[in-house]
Design a protein around this nucleic acid. Structure first.
Lengths: 299, 299
DNA sequence: ATTTTGTTTTTTATCTACAATAAACATTTT
DNA sequence: AAAATGTTTATTGTAGATAAAAAACAAAAT
């Protein structure tokens, strides 16, 4: 088959669960915009809803007849985009313990294992290569460079350069900028989490990602934004497989964030840099500690 | 057809021109290593050389019978890799004056125009997207973001962060590191060029690229290296189409480089940072001046 | 024993085809 | 007239096929 209709299925599920009996649905272009799909797909959704007897559809009249049940929805395996499937599968492999740096990556084998065509795997690998974890030799195979100590250090260096830059830019934002309100809201979220840290410390990584994203957006620099996207994805998988997310470490990070936020709000560039450096320093330690520990020979 | 044998043809040309009558050729693995291809391709080259009567080949005996002529070589159109063809063609299009930012990029149209399949164009665009000049909307077209003032400023910001970092690292290299010798050699090259600046100012961009590459290699950071690769390619095409490479500007840059080199050799981090900043500042101006000038509204 | 050549197998690079999706065009309804 | 619906066309995403190139294996030569 040429292409799975996952866009349709995913959007169908999303739309179906939000339906309420006896309500009237808006126009096709409006539905399409709501779901972020084309009108063609929106119409396919309406057609299916109609066929399933969930709505009565006649031209502009679209009435919800009944609430869809779980039975009406597509199973989650069918709604994941191929890209996500490949990403998950690939990340599992390279973060597994038997994936040694230097290992060859075989497109065909990967494709077979995932149950997909080689084209999609190739494209995924090309996109993924920007994370610096794999490398290609022309006309030959990809090589796994691995989530090594060098990788972590190089990543941390760039992250520090970028975040110091972004934090400084943030401090220069005009006071009426939306980001200041967002920052204040985030400060409160940190306080809430801290108050219940024993139960909520596992939620920290999501908050952490949102916090740094907010800072980086201030730089308005596409290269910084792209790099942070890459970091976020790599970390997402890395920390999922390496549950070193100790309560204590997260609690400390929250305190650092709060100091950092206070510094930003002060507008004092010296204070901002100090708070940013302090947090980045401990973030680097966290990252290094999350790696499989190898005996480090000291000179 | 599935794949052009450009690797073979390009390597064949490369090997043929280096042949000298009556010499004996080394073993197959050695030839393959010399050319940077597999032994299969090396054997294909030997087979063809033999068929053309250029060598006599019998097992280990490989004697050059005659010097190949231009007639024996494959024409250059047949030796360019598809990737290079697409890159050139695409860069011409996006640097052309009629390529306005916001323009849609159509894979199929591009492929037809270049005379290639869509897959290759897709892969090229994915790879190219890391330069930040194009962006994709999922399930839909690519959009040209364009070589705009914003792009140049964002690029310059990151370049400055990275180069300050790399320069500082360079200053910390042990004195017996090869890079110091390379730097000294490069200092001499700058002097030579400066002595004959009226004739040689056009060669500066190549020297400039090599100089900055040398600095960046000191950082031993894959993200910095990758970014510099991207910069080099973008600049290569940009300055090819925008010949603002004035003699005067290049002369000034050479002087800045020499100051920069002297600072590096002094090992004094304060001096390094100052010289690096000075050069980056004027490089930024050069970049901005090379852009199509638009009326800038002043607040 | 190691290197070289001869042969076969595997893998990549690329084209083509086609369903899903988006986008464009035409018609109807308000 | 503007917006919505109905219909058609264009473009993207993905699988499958195949020649080129790499890699692996086997036999021969130093």
């Amino acid at each position: 088959m040429a292409r799975q209709n996952t866009v349709f299925k995913e959007a169908y599920n999303r739309y179906a669960v939000a339906l309420r009996t006896d309500t009237a649905l808006p126009s096709e272009p409006e539905i399409a915009a709501q779901l972020g799909v084309s009108r063609s797909t929106a119409r396919a959704i309406l057609t299916r809803l109609s066929e399933e007897g969930i709505i009565r559809w006649n031209k502009r009249q679209k009435i919800v007849l009944r609430q869809p049940t779980d039975h009406d929805l597509f199973p989650s395996e069918e709604t994941d985009s191929l890209h996500d499937i490949i990403e998950r599968s690939f990340m599992q492999r390279i973060l597994a313990d038997d994936a040694a740096p230097g290992m060859q990556i075989n497109e065909l084998e990967l494709a077979r294992e995932i149950g997909t065509g080689t084209t999609s795997v190739r494209e995924f690998l090309i996109r993924f290569s920007r994370f610096g974890l794999i490398e290609k030799r022309p006309n030959s195979h990809w090589t796994l460079k691995g989530f090594t100590r060098e990788f972590a250090l190089e990543l941390a260096d760039v992250r520090e350069m970028f975040e110091l830059h972004s934090a400084a830019e943030f401090g220069r934002l005009p006071r009426d900028n939306q980001s200041w309100a967002d920052l204040a809201a985030m400060r409160d979220e940190h306080h809430v989490m801290l108050a219940d840290i024993n139960h909520r410390f596992k939620d920290f990584s999501v908050l952490d990602e949102r916090f740094h994203l907010l800072i980086h957006r201030a730089s308005k620099n596409r290269f910084i934004a792209d790099f942070y996207d890459a970091i976020a994805i790599v970390f997402h998988y890395h920390y999922q497989w390496n549950k070193t997310a100790a309560r204590q470490r997260n609690e400390r990070a929250i305190h650092e964030h709060l100091d950092y936020i206070a510094a930003l709000e002060s507008g004092d560039q010296t204070a901002i840099e100090a708070a940013c450096r302090a947090h980045l320093h401990s973030a680097r330690q966290t990252l290094l500690q999350s790696l499989p520990q190898v005996a480090t020979e000291s000179a």
